[in-house]
Computed example of a mutant assay.
Amino acid sequence: MLTAPIERMLFGLSDDHVIVEPHSGQLMHPEALVAFQRLSADARDAGFDPQVVSGFRNFDRQRTIWNRKARGERPLLDSSGEPLDTGALSDREIVYAILRWSALPGGSRHHWGTDFDVVDRAAMSDNYQPQLTPQEVCDEGIFGPFHCWLDKRIAAGESYGLFRPYAEDRGGIAPERWHLSYAPAARELQDFLTAARLRDLVHKSDLALGETVCEDMDAIFERFVRVPERCYPQENT
């Protein structure tokens, strides 16, 4: 049985566990913020300027994103980023198409504040609006040099516990090179999250296609929600 504070933190039902990152105004878990500040200082010495563009997201915000896609109000994309014809898809196919690019409400690591999306402000012109696309973060992209630098820091165990939970394509969420996670706190919170708890939350929520999600929750949880232990850094500094 989860205590109320842990449940609210786990599912993004409260923001009591996050604080403001002063430069971006984004909300972050305090320990993740300290790790990001330490990494940012090193990055600035190397000529980069990391900026958080999306930190904590509450359940309601994630549900709005989900419902708009499920109702056809926002486009669905295939694994290559091309638009799908939603009229030709079953409910189950729509659910899995959404999950490829958007986290299930209640199952988003952004709820914890331990996870955040980052760009290199030093690489942007004043009017540039980051889109968080694979093209931006590939080695040849606008943020490529920063991420190549970060790759080396993570591999060397010099990223202060920050890592990429979606660094590779495991057949679930598409790779997100821009998505960083603070391993010590995220691992602890993930241990509380189960398919049964998430199914119960979705069942009680006004989530479009919620019944389909609940029917397939065990598979969804393993494929799209749970990050395997092997993906976490073995040693955190």
Rank of each mutant, 00 (worst) to 15 (best):
R164H: 13
L198W: 03
T194M: 08
D169E: 06
E188Y: 02
R170P: 00
H179K: 01
R187H: 13
V202G: 08
G172L: 06
E168R: 08
F192C: 08
L180C: 01
A183P: 12
A185E: 07
W178I: 08
W178L: 02
H179D: 06
L198G: 08
R199E: 13
A183M: 10
T194W: 14
L193V: 03
A167K: 14
L201A: 02
L198T: 04
P184Q: 05
L193Y: 11
G171C: 01
I173N: 07
D200N: 09
F192Y: 15
A183L: 10
L189N: 15
L201I: 08
F163Q: 12
H179L: 09
Y166C: 01
W178F: 14
R199M: 08
A174K: 14
R170I: 01
G172Q: 12
L198C: 07
W178S: 03
S181H: 07
R170H: 06
G172R: 07
P165Q: 13
D200T: 09
L201C: 05
V202T: 10
V202L: 08
T194F: 04
V202H: 02
W178C: 03
A186G: 12
R177C: 00
D169Q: 03
E168G: 09
W178M: 07
E176H: 05
V202I: 13
A167I: 10
D169I: 02
D191R: 14
R164P: 13
F163V: 10
R199Q: 12
A196P: 02
A174M: 12
L201G: 01
F192V: 03
A196D: 12
E176A: 04
G171H: 01
D169W: 05
G172C: 09
L198V: 02
L201H: 12
